[in-house]
Measured scan of single mutants.
Amino acid sequence: SSQSQGISSSSTSTMPNSSQSSHSSSGTLSSLETVSTQELYSIPEDQEPEDQEPEEPTPAPWARLWALQDGFANLECVNDNYWFGRDKSCEYCFDEPLLKRTDKYRTYSKKHFRIFREVGPKNSYIAYIEDHSGNGTFVNTELVGKGKRRPLNNNSEIALSLSRNKVFVFFDLTVDDQSVYPKALRDEYIMSKTLGSGACGEVKLAFERKTCKKVAIKIISKRKFAIGSAREADPALNVETEIEILKKLNHPCIIKIKNFFDAEDYYIVLELMEGGELFDKVVGNKRLKEATCKLYFYQMLLAVQYLHENGIIHRDLKPENVLLSSQEEDCLIKITDFGHSKILGETSLMRTLCGTPTYLAPEVLVSVGTAGYNRAVDCWSLGVILFICLSGYPPFSEHRTQVSLKDQITSGKYNFIPEVWAEVSEKALDLVKKLLVVDPKARFTTEEALRHPWLQDEDMKRKFQDLLSEENESTALPQVLAQPSTSRKRPREGEAEGAETTKRPAVCAAVL
């Protein structure tokens, strides 16, 4: 046999249950609850290399294929790409003598399909299967379609040439079993990697079954959420508030809700932002270029202005709740996480202390139980975000031990490091100062900020419009641009040419 590394010779191994799959997660993409704000000051410096380099560890398999027929071997997927077919160049070659004697062998292509993985959001991997055969590759009886790919989820059954000719079961060793999710959700989405997690739940990458488009699904544990919100009269209202707010909003710089499922837990389906959180971008770069800050901040102002015009105060604006559309420097941003939002009543007064301390406005800290506050709290938070983006460190921090965090904020005395700000323009610093004003009545509004000289930049605004146009074009394009080929190089076993392929839609398939 010419099988590559990772293939075992026996096809009769006992199949494990899916609970053996491991679970991976990374930083929070968007969480309903406010958790302790991640610290920006503690960015690790590059460490000196050791005298002796450690040995390379043996790579762990990321997936496993269990053979369902004699003549096929099990495969431990270690590499990122595997070709399957009769050709000797394939990493998994159909060359077992037992297999060659079967009637089905002649229906398999020289290069029938490939399984591979690509880097997705949060640097996690996504597994795909890609059909290159004349007679078809099927996943859970659905045709992939020649020249098309679809994501592979845990426990997928792979069939060759005929939908009933099941050859492998695919085990993704990095994700959960699909069966743990409600059927209504599974009918519409293929669940994938964990993108982030918080005290009350997690955010998962998923794929729409009909279109193969990526989405983010925010899962909120009702049990954990009820415990964490025990002081509230009705904890469920917080989730329902977020859903109702998101459904009503329609702005290019605000995250869109696509679906909602109320089962044992809450499942909020949101558009996916491939670039992750602004927080991670700031930490990764230490600070952002001023031109990049301007492009992002302009969009934040437009989003918050839209919220305020619609009578909504976000109340928890922070870099973790600003998501980026891509890994590119120039990209769209979207505001997310409306769990603490407040729809303005007639009095415009709110007395609930919520939000993240580092970003809270002075009037929030001094008015607990005594007075109210209004939309100006969001403008203060925007000032803190702009400060961080321009400088790479927070204006107020618990680690300045000589003054408490509350006193720093209520006095408006931010930590100004001259040598850092020497590289920032006077106009940018002036806008920061106009937003970090203790008196909410004297603080800049979103309208005033948008009129500030720093943002009178036609090149930046043109760039934003171009990015918007690109997004609109990409969302308007159909996901499947061509029909699967019906040509046949070899006959199917026991049926006429093209008899099955043309009847089945290529579900969740995307043209390369």
Rank of each mutant, 00 (worst) to 15 (best):
D330A: 14
I255K: 02
W380S: 03
L450G: 13
T486R: 14
E473K: 10
L302K: 13
K434L: 09
K427Y: 00
S348W: 09
T358C: 13
C293Y: 10
G392A: 13
R488I: 00
G275V: 02
D459H: 11
V282W: 03
A303C: 14
L353T: 15
E426R: 13
L405Y: 14
A291T: 08
G276M: 09
R351Q: 06
E426G: 11
E500V: 07
G412E: 08
K434F: 00
L332T: 08
V377H: 01
V432L: 15
C331Q: 02
D265S: 07
K342I: 01
S404E: 00
G345V: 07
A371W: 04
F279N: 04
M350E: 03
L344Y: 15
L302M: 11
S325C: 10
N472Y: 08
F338Y: 02
L512V: 06
G355Y: 00
P362K: 00
Q479S: 07
S381L: 00
Y266N: 14
H308G: 02
S404L: 01
M273D: 00
A303M: 00
I268C: 13
K342G: 01
Y267D: 06
E471W: 06
K413R: 11
V432Q: 00
E274K: 07
P478L: 12
I268D: 11
A376L: 05
L349H: 13
E274A: 08
I335F: 04
S411V: 06
I417R: 01
A422S: 10
C253Y: 04
D337N: 00
M300N: 02
C331M: 02
D466S: 09
L278K: 01
Y266G: 10
G345Q: 06
A361F: 02
V322M: 09
T336S: 07
L435A: 15
R287F: 13
K258P: 02
Y298W: 08
L436I: 13
R287L: 14
E328S: 04
L382M: 08
L317F: 05
G494Q: 14
H308E: 02
K342S: 00
L272Y: 15
D378K: 00
G412W: 04
E346D: 10
K256M: 08
L353F: 13
S326Q: 02
T347L: 10
L323S: 02
N310F: 05
G355A: 02
K503H: 00
T292G: 10
S348M: 09
I257Y: 01
E329G: 11
L386A: 10
I257G: 05
G369K: 13
T352W: 00
N285Y: 14
K256E: 10
H314T: 02
F297K: 01
L246K: 00
V366I: 10
V304G: 09
S381C: 15
V480C: 14
H251S: 08
C508I: 09
